[in-house]
Design a protein around this nucleic acid. Structure first.
Length: 551
RNA sequence: GGUGCGGUAGCCAAGUGGCCAGGCAACGGUUUGCAAAACCGUGAUACGUGGGUUCAAAUCCCAUCCGCACCUCCA
């Protein structure tokens, strides 16, 4: 099989487009760097990283470009609020983004262009659009794209033609715009905006609008037309629609051959909450009147604090206010764990990656936060972490076996099975990156490898096949591919800390137990084990000695 | 109103006509001084609902309910 994908432009399953045989050019919309990212932002990073890993493992040459939008209204607003320079703030969050997704095992793209170093190309691109009269400038020094001049506008988001039922949105006309649908290519600087976000242009000082940067960066790094464009579902309209509109009139060629859009990570603010029935009923009523209440918003904390203050001052709340208070307080906790960095303090980043890849990239992924007695649990993530531990442990076990017995030599009956599982794994990914479907071949590989470890005299070639199959799936999924010691250290440290334990303390008890066992004092050994278990420590005895792990 | 995604066993999750997904949790076993890990085995009338097509439907058709998202700056 070869790679096929669901193209969101045509909504058809198509073979991987390749403008050059054996090569793939991929552009993915990166973050607007105005704050720490949340898990939702991490999904496209992980998904497209996995795509790149898979295509490369298949021997393709992939050019992967992912941008940073480092000049933008939101960045300027955030900088104003913090009294920082917008570019400095953006730089800080570029670094934060890099660190966050590196922890998720994402490889560095071949190019990571920024708006701030693509300004000449952006200006030239806008000039080309103006020259072709698909864009116009206003007396204020803004430049707008004239949507009416691009008959194919809407072909990606499939919203029908302008002036028809169901057309685009609720944009506002005015401010020099010819049509409410027109969007800004260039924005004249407003008084008070720092010099670091002002650039000279034929239309006066200003900065690029949103959308144009991606067209310019994609063309700069991948040429006038390229194979694949990726990003989140929400970017389909208007962002990607506008990229197409900006690019195709200039180059007279299709922009990207095919589009891949990942689904959202969804939060259910009521699910798995430990609210009582009356509270849930009241909240449901409130949500019916105002569905936006269910969304995580910046004002949640302020509204929660207002309610708390009111409770103090007025000496009580109505049932409705009490329900609101419960809801806001949950949303605040929710927003906290949704931030990737905070999430990764609760479960290992490797588990986050494995969890994301457990679901097909186009399907919605539910972010489940359970609360029991006020404590936050992440059942799906915790399950993923267990699985990732299993993968690491299995690899360690097999590698030790292979090191002891050697891998050089003929294969036995097992090698062909590993080869088959590997093919199943590759086929699953070839099928529109069906990472969920890889779970079966992965399970078979690791289970078979563990079985091989129990065999007295395994064929060296089988051990090699097992190790190579494990390494292959780890490398492509980006899970359990690094030396496992780091993973175990990280997980152990986190769990010990959560229980308020220090390693020496645990090791002391384990040593005492070992001594007891050595003197065949099993009663004492078992008592010590029970004590360790109550601390969340699992002890493992083996012929090579005793080890322990935090659970 | 427009556009798209989804509803599969206790939970997560593949699956577009016939055969088994897979994982977690549960239970039994091998192993172990006892455990843990690993492996082996066992599940359940699983396909939102109502009709229809077919020898055969989670899968195709019609209707319908529910959830989520986007529709000018959220991945």
């Amino acid at each position: 099989m070869s790679f096929h994908l669901h193209d969101s432009l045509t909504d058809a399953r198509i073979p991987l487009p390749e403008r050059k045989p054996g090569e793939t050019s991929l552009y993915v919309c990166g973050p607007t760097v105005y704050g720490l990212i949340h898990v939702g932002n991490a999904r496209p990073a992980v998904v497209f990283d996995t795509l790149v890993r898979h295509l490369r493992a298949q021997g393709r040459k992939v050019t992967y470009v992912r941008n940073y939008t480092d000049v933008d209204d939101k960045i300027i607003a955030a900088a104003e609020a913090s009294g920082e320079d917008p570019r400095a703030l953006a730089e800080r969050f570029v670094e934060a983004y890099r660190a966050d997704i590196r922890a998720l095992g994402c490889l560095t793209p071949d190019a990571e262009p920024r708006v701030s170093d693509t300004i000449p190309e952006i200006v030239a691109h806008i000039e080309a659009l103006v020259a072709r009269e698909v864009a116009y400038s206003t007396p204020d020094g803004d430049v707008y794209y004239d949507v009416a001049r691009f008959p194919e506008y809407g072909k990606l988001s499939k919203r029908g033609a302008l002036g028809q039922k169901g057309e685009f949105g609720r944009g506002k006309a005015g401010e020099g715009k010819r049509s409410e649908h027109d969007f800004a290519l260039w924005k004249a600087s407003r008084p008070g905006e720092p010099g670091s976000v002002r650039w000279a242009s034929p239309w006066g000082e200003g900065r690029p609008g949103w959308h144009i940067e991606c067209s310019a960066m994609a063309h700069k790094h991948l040429g006038p037309a390229f194979d694949l464009h990726g990003g989140g579902m929400d970017l389909k309209f208007p962002h990607h629609e506008n990229e197409i509109a900006q690019s195709e009139p200039v180059h007279g060629a299709p922009f990207a051959r095919a589009w891949m859009h990942n689904g959202f990570i969804e939060l259910d603010v009521l699910g798995h909450a430990d609210f009582d029935e009356a509270t849930v009923g009241t909240i449901r009523g409130l949500l019916e009147r105002d569905p936006d209440l269910g969304k995580i918003s910046k004002s949640d904390r302020a509204r929660l604090e207002a309610l708390q203050a009111r409770e103090r001052d007025a000496g009580g709340l109505t049932d409705e206010e009490r329900a609101l208070q419960a809801l806001f307080s949950r949303k605040v906790r929710f927003a906290e764990v949704f931030v990737l960095r905070n999430l990764c303090a609760r479960v290992d980043p490797q588990a986050v990656r494995y969890w994301i890849l457990g679901t097909h990239y186009r399907a919605p992924l539910g972010f489940e936060v359970a609360e029991r007695d006020g404590a936050v649990h992440l059942p799906a993530l915790e399950q993923a972490e267990k699985r990732v531990e299993y993968l690491h442990e299995s690899y360690v076990r097999l590698a030790a076996r292979a090191a002891l017995l050697g891998e050089q030599g003929p294969a036995g009956a097992e090698a062909k099975h590993f080869a088959q599982h590997r093919r199943d794994f590759d086929d699953a990914l070839d099928d529109d990156l069906n990472t969920g479907l890889t779970q079966e071949p992965v399970a078979r590989i690791f289970e078979r490898a563990n079985r091989l470890c129990d065999v007295k005299k395994p064929a060296p070639g089988d051990l090699r096949a097992a190790r190579e199959a494990m390494a292959h799936v780890s490398r492509v999924l980006g899970v359990a591919e690094l030396p496992p010691e780091g993973f175990f250290r990280r997980v152990t440290a986190r769990r010990l800390k959560a229980r308020g334990l220090v390693e020496g303390q645990v090791q002391g008890l384990v040593t005492q137990r070992e001594n007891a066992r050595a003197s065949k004092d099993f009663a004492r050994a078992d008592a010590l084990r029970a004590e360790l278990v109550s601390l969340g420590i699992e002890v493992r005895d083996s012929p090579q000695g005793t080890t322990w792990r935090a659970v």
